[in-house]
Amino acid sequence: MLKVERLTKYFELNISRSMKVQPFNDISFEVEQGAFLGIAGPSGIGKSSILKCIYRTYIPTAGKVWYDSAKYGTIDLARASERQITHLRVREISYVSQFLKVIPRVSAEDVVAERLLPFGQSLEQARAEARQMLKRLNIPASLWEAYPATFSGGEQQRVNLARAFIVRPRLLILDEPTASLDNETKQHVLDLLNDMKRQGTTMIGVFHDWDVMGKVADRILDLRTVQMSAEYKQLAEAE
């Protein structure tokens, strides 16, 4: 479903002087359909940047991101057009960041329901499904018509997860999805993720909590090992 080949990203910063920051270099991996790949490593090693390159929030400096799309067939997300990326984000790929970004004066149920409208559902049908998803993620009914901007961090993250889960994406990208959740809600999220895996959703994610990641990931890519291997390879080539 997803094949990343020699992915590299660097940023050029111009503050007092020109600097090049390279969060990761020459990263390759594959994820089969219905599998979950966890990405691990210390802060600053490039975990979130890899996810953003896959989702195309960042444009990679080098490398390819092959994705098996329902509409376009096998497509390189690193070089796809903006129109293709927009379609895939609406129809096939969901991304959960650590922060919810929505229009301020829109209710929680409508924030979630809005994701279903491009699939031909009526607003009432979409709201009904949104309420069920919010309920499953422990958002009380008293908050369904309230604005997420007034919610706690954990409540906002549950709305964020509901938006991603409700469309049952082909590819789900998760960046610290459970960091601000209590233990009970974490378990609900894990149950939902495992349900989606059984239904064929492919997932790639970063978790702060290794125990939580271990309960859902089929395989864990430790970037410390990958980056070190790349450094040894460069040294060998130089010799």
Score class of each variant (00 low, 15 high):
I39M: 08
Q132L: 13
Y232L: 15
T202F: 04
R168A: 13
Y95A: 08
D110K: 14
Y67I: 04
R115D: 09
D191H: 09
A179P: 00
G205W: 06
W210N: 12
L116F: 06
T185H: 01
L77F: 10
Q33D: 03
V65N: 04
V4W: 03
F99E: 13
R83M: 11
R79W: 13
G200T: 02
R198F: 07
R168I: 09
I173V: 08
A126C: 03
M133S: 06
I39Q: 06
V212K: 00
M213H: 10
D222T: 06
E237I: 15
H188P: 00
P104D: 06
W144E: 11
V65L: 04
S107F: 07
E184T: 12
R6T: 11
K3M: 09
N194M: 10
Q33V: 01
I103A: 14
F24A: 11
S81A: 11
V216Y: 09
S152T: 13
M228C: 00
F99Y: 07
A62H: 14
F119T: 03
Y58F: 05
Q187G: 05
L171I: 05
D68K: 15
A179D: 01
D191G: 07
R198Y: 07
Q187P: 00
F119Q: 05
R131V: 08
A146N: 13
G46P: 03
W210P: 11
L117V: 08
Q157L: 02
F151L: 07
I204P: 00
K9E: 06
I39N: 02
D110I: 10
K71E: 14
A238T: 09
S69Q: 01
Q156V: 04
D76E: 06
Q132G: 12
E82H: 09
A62W: 08
G46M: 12
E109N: 06
I15G: 03
G46W: 04
G44A: 02
K64P: 00
V226A: 03
T202Y: 06
E129Q: 15
S107Q: 12
V31K: 03
S48C: 13
R219H: 02
G44T: 00
Q121S: 12
I166S: 12
Y55K: 04
V112C: 08
T225S: 11
I50Y: 05
Q227F: 12
D68Y: 12
T178R: 10
T86K: 15
V216D: 04
Q121R: 15
E184V: 14
T178F: 03
L172A: 02
A236Y: 13
R6P: 00
A146E: 13
P60T: 12
Y95V: 11
L37C: 08
E114R: 11
D191F: 10
K101L: 14
N183R: 12
L181Y: 07
A113Q: 01
M213L: 13
P60K: 07
E92A: 02
R219D: 02
A35E: 13
L171C: 01
E176H: 01
L171Q: 03
V65H: 01
R170F: 04
Q132I: 11
R163W: 00
L137A: 12
L100C: 10
Q125D: 14
Y58T: 00
F29E: 08
Q84P: 03
S81P: 06
R105M: 12
E184S: 14
Q157F: 03
F29N: 07
G153N: 08
I45V: 15
V102T: 11
L223D: 05
L37P: 02
Q234F: 07
E155P: 07
V31Q: 00
Y147E: 02
